[in-house]
Amino acid sequence: MTVSHLKYMITPQKYKQLPMDLNEIFGNKRRVVVEIGFGGGEYLVAMAKKNLETNFIGIETSLTACDRAQKKIYNEGLKNIRLIIGDARFLLKEIFSHESISKVIVNFPCPWPKKRHKNRRIFVEYFRNTLASSLKEGGYLELATDVEWYAEEVKEYFSKDQRFEVENIEKNFKREIKTRYEKKWDKMGRDKFLIKIKKVKSEEIQRLLKEQEIMPHQKIKNLSKEKLESIINEEFNTVSGKTIIREKFENDEKIILRSITVEKELTQEYYIEIIKRDDEYLIKLDPMTTPFRTPGVKEAIKKIANKVAI
Rank of each mutant, 00 (worst) to 15 (best):
E273D: 07
T238W: 00
F236Q: 00
I214N: 09
E263T: 03
I244H: 00
E269M: 13
V239A: 14
F236R: 00
D252Y: 08
I231H: 01
I283K: 02
V262K: 09
D278N: 13
M288L: 14
E269L: 13
E250C: 03
N222Y: 11
K219L: 15
K221M: 11
K284Y: 07
N251M: 05
I220W: 01
I214P: 03
S230M: 08
T267A: 10
I244D: 02
F249K: 13
K242G: 11
K225F: 14
E213Q: 07
I283P: 04
E265R: 04
Y271L: 15
I244C: 04
N251T: 07
F249N: 11
E273H: 07
L257Y: 04
E234M: 11
Y271I: 14
E229V: 09
S230C: 10
I256L: 14
T243P: 00
I272E: 08
I256V: 15
L209R: 00
K225G: 13
E234G: 02
I275K: 05
K254C: 05
F236T: 01
E234K: 08
T243R: 03
I256R: 01
E234P: 02
I272P: 08
D252M: 06
L223N: 04
V262W: 05
Y270W: 06
Q268K: 01
L223P: 00
H217Y: 11
E273V: 14
E250I: 12
T238A: 07
L285F: 04
S230W: 05
E213P: 01
R258Y: 09
L208E: 15
L223Y: 01
S259C: 14
N222P: 05
V262R: 04
K210H: 10
K242L: 06
E250D: 10
K284R: 13
Y270D: 01
E247K: 09
